[in-house]
Simulated assay, not measured.
Amino acid sequence: MRKRKLATCTALFAIALPVFAADTSVDVRANIKGICVIDSITAIDFGDLEQGTTAPDRNAPGSVRYWCTKGLVYSVTLGNGNNATGSQRRMKGVAVTNSAEFLPYDLTSGSPATGTGAGPGAPVTLTLTGSVRGADYNLLSVGQLLDTVVVTIAP
């Protein structure tokens, strides 16, 4: 009878052995995409320019507010506009009476041309100043003038 008990105990012991599982791991990943976003733009508007024997030179402010992903190195460039001749920016007449006329202007930026992004919580304002000479607009016909300058903010 003793043999039977021993056999039964051995069988129960074999059934009670734990089953071991293999360890594995799962990677969890993300990538923060580097982007720059323009939040708002304030146009450069010279308003009404009045001709006269001593028409004054005029300046007008404008701005572009933007942000770039934190840590992203970026650069800001200003295009020459749609009506440039060489590197001289020009506004073009949009009314029938002055559609073939151009008003030269200068555009300067008060901000650095490069930077490092600080994220959406820290936007940057690119200050712009446009200027026209009285001697240039004193020669033009009545009507509105317009140009569009592309501002590029890129990594």
Rank of each mutant, 00 (worst) to 15 (best):
L126S: 05
S109L: 11
S75N: 14
S25I: 12
Y105H: 00
G110W: 04
C68V: 04
T116W: 03
A22L: 09
R2Y: 12
V19R: 07
S75W: 08
D147H: 02
T42H: 11
F13I: 12
A11C: 13
Q144I: 14
A154N: 14
K5Q: 15
A43L: 09
R90A: 08
G62L: 05
T24I: 09
G86L: 07
C9V: 15
K92V: 08
N80Q: 14
T77R: 10
L128W: 05
P104S: 09
L103M: 04
L72R: 00
V150S: 14
D39C: 06
V28N: 10
I153N: 01
Q88T: 14
G81N: 04
S87H: 10
T148F: 13
I153M: 02
V124D: 02
G143L: 09
P123T: 04
V151W: 02
C36T: 02
P18Y: 08
V94R: 06
G121P: 04
L128E: 02
L72F: 08
Q88W: 10
Y66K: 00
I44Q: 03
S109W: 03
D39W: 06
A113K: 10
D57N: 00
L128S: 04
V132L: 01
V73W: 12
G71W: 07
V142R: 15
V96E: 15
T42N: 13
T8A: 15
I153W: 00
V37K: 08
Q51V: 06
V142W: 12
D45F: 06
T8I: 15
V132M: 05
G93K: 00
Q88F: 10
V28C: 10
G110Y: 03
G81P: 04
D147Q: 06
R133N: 11
S141T: 12
Q144R: 14
T42W: 11
E50Y: 12
G121T: 05
Y74V: 02
G119P: 01
V26E: 10
M91K: 02
C68Y: 00
V64G: 00
P123M: 08
R90P: 03
I32V: 15
K33W: 10
K3Y: 12
F46V: 05
I35V: 13
A95R: 11
L12F: 11
P120A: 15
T97E: 12
V19Y: 10
A30F: 13
R65F: 07
P155L: 01
C68K: 00
G143P: 04
G62P: 00
L128M: 09
N82F: 10
